[in-house]
């Protein structure tokens, strides 16, 4: 057992128990009297962690991360485990790329890489009405957001935000190239001011759609340029920053 704060940035393994500063080792039987106790910040338990009697139980291996959320109370903030994983589990609010596998009446079935196919109503597109149906065919790629993602229910997707605008979501065009990478790489690419994206954008212009389910859709001016981007992105999984810069320098020459 170790204090959660001391383990931030370090590798944790399933079965490790992280002690929280809010629960000092002294006996918990004693009641704290008076309002003198510091207002405890809300503790958020992110992916790879569970609450247990002693503190936080680690359930995945990876690096422990922590983010302070407002306030400044010692116990507050969010803890999570940054792990490398290939299989996607739907999470509410995540933007993903799905492949249409079936058209069943008024809903489409989408393969998003999870354990179950997601459903998407034909009315969940911008400007769609009962008469004006979106033109969706089996095999099309759709970029959408999870409205319902619950372990006990079928996940449900939409291609509009709460104000009814598409906001970039919808059917992805016919051409382009779809690849599948690990979820860790996707998170790295989606991080604000991602180095990889910034370096790639200096090569030549291209379109990129990143789905939290590990799918990337790329389209550049020519097929050759598209494939170059695809190969670099796939290789990023195993390259260090230094190797990546060398590889990119090769392409930026011509």
């Amino acid at each position: 057992m170790a204090a959660a704060e001391a383990c931030v940035g370090q590798v944790v393994l399933p079965g490790d128990v992280l002690l929280l500063p809010a629960h000092p080792d002294e006996d918990g039987e004693r009641l704290r009297l008076g309002g003198g106790a510091a207002p405890r910040g809300r503790l958020l338990c992110g992916p790879g962690l569970r609450r247990c009697a002693a503190g936080l139980l680690v359930t995945k291996c990876g690096l422990l991360r922590h983010r302070q959320t407002g306030g400044g109370a010692a116990a507050g903030g969010a803890y999570w485990v940054d792990s490398q994983q290939k299989r996607y589990v739907p999470v509410k609010g995540d933007h993903v790329i799905g492949v249409v596998t079936a058209k069943a009446g008024d809903v489409f079935k989408l393969d998003v890489g999870g354990s179950e196919q997601a459903s998407l109503s034909y009315l969940a597109f911008e400007g769609a009405t009962k008469r004006n149906r979106p033109n969706v065919q089996v095999g099309d790629l759709i970029y959408g957001q999870f409205l319902v993602a619950n372990k006990d229910m079928e996940p449900e997707m939409v291609c509009i935000d709460s104000s009814g605008r598409s906001n970039g979501m919808g059917i992805i065009g016919q051409d382009g190239f779809l690849i599948k990478v690990s979820l860790g790489l996707i998170r790295k690419l989606l991080a604000p001011k991602s180095e990889i994206i910034q370096e790639l954008s200096q090569l030549y212009p291209f379109e990129l759609v990143l789905g939290m389910n590990g799918r990337i859709w790329v389209k550049a001016k020519t097929v050759q340029q598209t494939l170059i981007i695809v190969n670099i992105l796939e290789a990023c999984e195993y390259m260090t920053a230094e190797q990546r810069k060398q590889a990119l320098a090769k392409f930026s020459g011509n």
């Binding site: 291996c61 994983q85 290939k86």
Partner: peptide
């Protein structure tokens, strides 16, 4: 199991 990132209570 560890490589797949499945939730485990211990190793």
């Amino acid at each position: 199991l560890l490589d797949a990132g499945l939730p485990l209570s211990s190793l």
